[in-house]
Design a protein around this nucleic acid. Structure first.
Lengths: 205, 205
DNA sequence: TGTACATCAGTGAACGCGCGTTCACTGATGTAC
DNA sequence: TGTACATCAGTGAACGCGCGTTCACTGATGTAC
């Protein structure tokens, strides 16, 4: 039987969930430890039984996010196999999908200001997600002519950057400029053009 | 003679500059009205002679940033003319350059959470920057075969997104993943691949 | 040039607030005998 | 099964703090005569 706790049941998880809701609703700035505690039906002091403080709670939410994110990337990658191209495309789409479905985690990971180097655990989790894309990019290169060209990890960085940019600029209402395009279409088309530029898609699809 | 003010000289500008330094050093979260006032050598209450409050001060900094940004984009675009390709590439590079040279403004504009729809002035300033890129993309399309393809503004959105992503993920130390590549190289290569995919660069450069 | 007056940028004290964090405690849960 | 005890998750009161904002004021600057 899972250890259903003493008084609350599973406060730690409840606090993380409360934090995620707050982060999503009010941004990383608006998040407060006290309000997260209140939402979990608990005194602020109770938080300190499970976390070292405010920062640590955010970091824990981010860590959980990185685990989910890496899992999702690996899953997308596997689904695209054995086609290197399909696998690569899938990881790009998975990025946007994750931001859509888990906005609280996404913000905690990429916009809360917590460093990925905070703990080795956090660093490793983020590295696992990165490495999926790197692997996909590497396989894509194997099919390409062996000229001198940028390393594979540069290609994954490009897709990573474009995905992140689409999320930040066009998938959030708050940001700089609303576009007339759906983020999914924007990213799909962008990755398409990019892959054509790599020579792994025919010049005119 | 410029109106050198009563007591301070030019408090409004001094406050904006103080705010920019704080935003750069501590992020939009860490910025406080009181500290900006202190840095300008003035009481917090004095801020209210020039701004409606904390948010308004940030918005003013962002507005100033959008003006500079749009100017810089227009300049880059003009330098690239009459080549549509050079003009388009230049605007992408200008994006990164701006983020490098004016990090405080950049953060106030894109990471502070203030909406571009806050005032019409702010909205117009941001639109001016956007429109430079749109114009460059539009001209690029004129040289392209007239098949059915996504509208020009989609291409500028792609470059916009990739530029933003490169800045956020690889040009700041804090963020998710340090890459072994210089942001400038990363963006240059990425835009290159993308333009090849558009068919406006030869398949192998 | 000198005096009286109006303007208004900046002062300084005060406010209420919610924050993160601490501490001695309490009382429900689990365990030993 | 029943009792005595240990554990420790969560309490509640308290703290010091810096925040954004307000207000009546002051005193330097600019202007009118």
């Amino acid at each position: 039987m899972p250890k259903r706790g003493y008084h609350h049941g599973n406060l730690k998880e409840a606090l993380i969930e409360a934090a995620l809701v707050l982060i999503r609703e009010k941004g990383p700035t608006g998040f407060t430890l006290s309000e997260a505690a209140k939402r979990a039906g608990v005194t602020p002091a109770a938080v300190y039984r499970h976390f070292d403080g405010r920062e640590d709670l955010i970091a824990e939410a981010a860590l959980q996010g990185y685990h989910m994110f890496a899992d999702l990337m690996e899953h997308a990658y596997r689904d695209g196999q054995p086609s290197a191209l399909a696998a690569f495309e899938a990881t790009g789409r998975a990025y946007l999908a994750f931001a859509r479905v888990h906005p609280g985690h996404y913000i905690a990971m990429f916009e809360s200001g917590i460093s990925v180097n905070r703990t080795t655990e956090l660093s490793q989790a983020s590295q696992r997600a990165r490495s999926v894309m790197d692997r996909a990019a590497h396989e894509l290169c194997h099919n390409m002519p062996e000229d001198r060209r940028p390393p594979a990890s540069m290609f994954s960085a490009h897709i990573w950057a474009m995905s992140h940019g689409v999320v930040e600029l066009f998938a959030r209402n708050s940001a700089g400029a609303q576009s007339p395009f759906a983020p999914e279409d924007l990213l799909e088309t962008g990755i398409g053009v990019y892959l054509r530029g790599l020579g792994v898609l025919p010049p005119d699809g």
